[in-house]
């Protein structure tokens, strides 16, 4: 007797990959612990160094995204490295096409970064006394920043998974792709720390949206070639 076939589409297969990764993460807390520990440690060091001094908005914004970026780098690459190191990648390749695997991993990285941002952002405000008036605009910048970071780094994570010097390679390959994103995020955040609202960051928001769309689409199209090699 065989199991009946269904028309399980891209969404249900992608969700299966995402749900599997969430389940594995909740049982091991491998990436989540790395991200949160890195983020909180960096934040604590920054906070102790600053003491009572108030930094100007542009430095505060840069500090915020430096903490976010390095915390994210600590965990985002794990999605494919773990499959490669545990040898499960062959079973995955034999069972699934490239697209559902990429989308599942992208969703998982989005989940990781959302948890990271939710934990670290309030702590950043508490430790540094930074203030933001346009909370809605700030949230929108954060969401677009998270999507941009995920879409750019998930593909790089797949590329470096087979390499021997994974950590260094991840940073080197991610850097040129992420520079325009990080510069725009810092610029938008600086304006928001400087009491700006939605109107002040409209140009940056448009760029961030375009970056997220282009990176996600490009990654989906390119991932097939990375997956087949």
């Amino acid at each position: 007797m065989t199991s009946p076939k269904t028309n399980a589409g891209l969404i249900s297969k992608s969700f299966a990959v995402f749900a599997k990764d969430i389940r594995l993460e909740l049982r091991s807390r491998y990436a989540l612990n790395a991200i949160l520990m890195f983020g909180i440690t960096t934040l604590a060091v920054v906070s102790f160094s600053l003491g009572q001094s108030n930094l100007p908005p542009h430095l505060m914004a840069a500090l915020f995204w430096v903490v976010m970026f390095f915390s994210a780098v600590a965990g985002l690459a794990q999605v494919f490295i773990r499959e490669e190191e545990t040898g499960t990648i062959l079973a995955l390749k034999l069972a699934a096409a490239a697209e559902p695997v990429y989308l599942g991993k992208l969703l998982f990285n989005f989940f990781l970064l959302t948890v990271m941002v939710t934990v670290i952002t309030p702590l950043f405000f508490i430790f540094t006394d930074a203030q933001v008036v346009g909370i809605a605009a700030f949230s929108a910048v954060l969401i677009l920043g998270v999507i941009g970071l995920c879409s750019a780094t998930t593909l790089v994570a797949a590329i470096i998974a087979k390499a021997s010097v994974k950590g260094a390679l991840f940073a080197v390959l991610s850097f040129p792709i992420l520079v325009p994103l990080l510069l725009t995020l810092v610029q938008a955040t600086q304006k928001l720390f400087d009491n700006g609202a939605f109107d002040a960051v409209m140009t940056e928001m448009q760029f961030l949206l375009a970056y997220a769309v282009v990176m996600t689409t490009g990654s989906i199209l390119l991932f097939k070639y990375v997956w087949q090699e």
Partner: peptide
């Protein structure tokens, strides 16, 4: 069971 369920979904099978 979770392994079988996961690979069944990826292969488009109902199990």
């Amino acid at each position: 069971e979770e392994n079988l369920q996961f690979f069944a979904t990826l292969r488009g099978l109902t199990i």
